[in-house]
């Protein structure tokens, strides 16, 4: 086991998949010669050649549409969209095509494409290099939505997406922690099943549910409130679809309090779904209102991004308030 960053883990995962399965192909803008603008595909063009590490013209719907065609024939395309902010030109291909192929063909045509894309703020990218719109994909039946927050999960979930899945997977990479999240990653093949949340830290007073770059942020907040005697349990969902609602409910039944943290806008965000599930199934265990801590209901700012993104401070206050509400 070696210590690597999240982006290196993704690179290792891609290399591993390419080595073991000749059907795996990578495609996207600047992913070949340049190794990807974040270097996710660094070295792979040299190792596997231009036929399997494909530099495409600038067309996201071209990239996804072509990946779908490859997948229908049996390849395992892994497409990179350079930033999630630029995935919308491909929205039709993702929502109307990839998500519906299996259904509309009565199961004859599964559509196993993996679409990787960096997402989220905190890198001074302004409104077109910071968006988190996971809810758009999570609310589209037919798409699986994966969001790792550690290097080991990034590799393990990616290899599961490529090797074990047969459905379209939207693989969202929290770019803010590409280089700051470090950890040990198992060598070789390593898989993390979909639909199994990770309990990051156990606690008895309040449940904190999060994913992506907000997991390390929430962990800092959880550690901060611990000094004030509040023991919070932190859950990293890992996959939004399929959702491990059982782990969430089990925790809320224990603590009676729930805080949901994501950086996407709050209104109709993924937190709304979590909040609904908790209300529907654990209402009688609740000792305080559910709290959502999220981005504001505006486009993503540039100069004021630190005020927009849930800060450790804001999360800690929210946890404390929820834990002590009577």
């Amino acid at each position: 086991m070696t210590q690597v960053t999240l982006i290196q883990a993704i690179n290792q995962g891609l290399r591993q998949a390419m080595k073991t399965d000749p059907d795996v192909v990578l495609m996207g803008e600047d992913i070949g010669v340049n190794g990807g603008v974040f270097r996710a595909t660094d070295g792979l063009y040299k190792e596997f050649g231009e036929a399997r590490v494909i530099d495409t013209p600038l067309s996201e719907n071209g990239i996804v549409g072509m990946a779908i065609g490859m997948a229908l024939y049996g390849l395992k395309p892994v497409a990179e969209i350079q930033f999630m902010d630029f995935i919308y030109p491909a929205f039709d291909q993702i929502v109307n095509e990839a998500a519906k192929f299996r259904y509309r063909s009565g199961g004859q045509f599964p559509c196993h494409v993996v679409i990787r894309t960096p997402f989220g703020g905190g890198i001074r990218g302004g409104l077109y290099h910071s968006q988190s719109t996971e809810q758009l994909f999570a609310s589209t039946p037919g798409l699986k939505v994966v969001i790792p927050s550690t290097p080991a999960d990034a590799k393990g979930l990616l290899l599961t997406a490529i090797h074990d899945e047969e459905d379209p997977v939207i693989f969202l990479e929290p770019k803010r922690i590409y280089r700051t999240a470090t950890g040990e990653v198992p060598e070789g093949d390593h898989r993390i099943p979909f639909g199994k949340a990770r309990v990051v830290k156990e606690g008895s007073d309040v449940t904190v549910v999060s994913y992506g770059a907000m997991v390390p942020q929430s962990l800092q907040a959880v550690n901060a409130v611990e000094k004030m005697g509040v023991h919070a349990e932190l859950i990293d969902l890992r996959t939004l679809v399929p959702l491990d609602y059982e782990t969430v409910l089990r925790s809320v039944e224990k603590t009676g309090r729930a805080v949901i943290v994501h950086e996407a806008s709050k209104f109709a965000g993924f937190g709304a779904e979590l909040s609904a599930i908790i209300s529907e199934r654990a209402l009688y265990h609740l000792k305080a209102p559910i709290l959502r801590i999220a981005g504001y209901d505006t486009p993503f700012p540039y100069a004021l991004e630190n005020l927009y993104l849930p800060s450790v401070d804001r999360i800690a206050r929210g946890i404390e308030r929820t834990a002590t509400a009577t």
């Binding site: 001074r124 302004g126 409104l127 486009p299 700012p301 540039y302 100069a303 004021l304």
Partner: peptide
């Protein structure tokens, strides 16, 4: 991208 920026600091520089 300061308070006098005509787009109120919403865009990256050079926009």
């Amino acid at each position: 991208t300061n308070g006098v920026d005509p787009c109120k600091g919403r865009q990256m520089p050079c926009h």
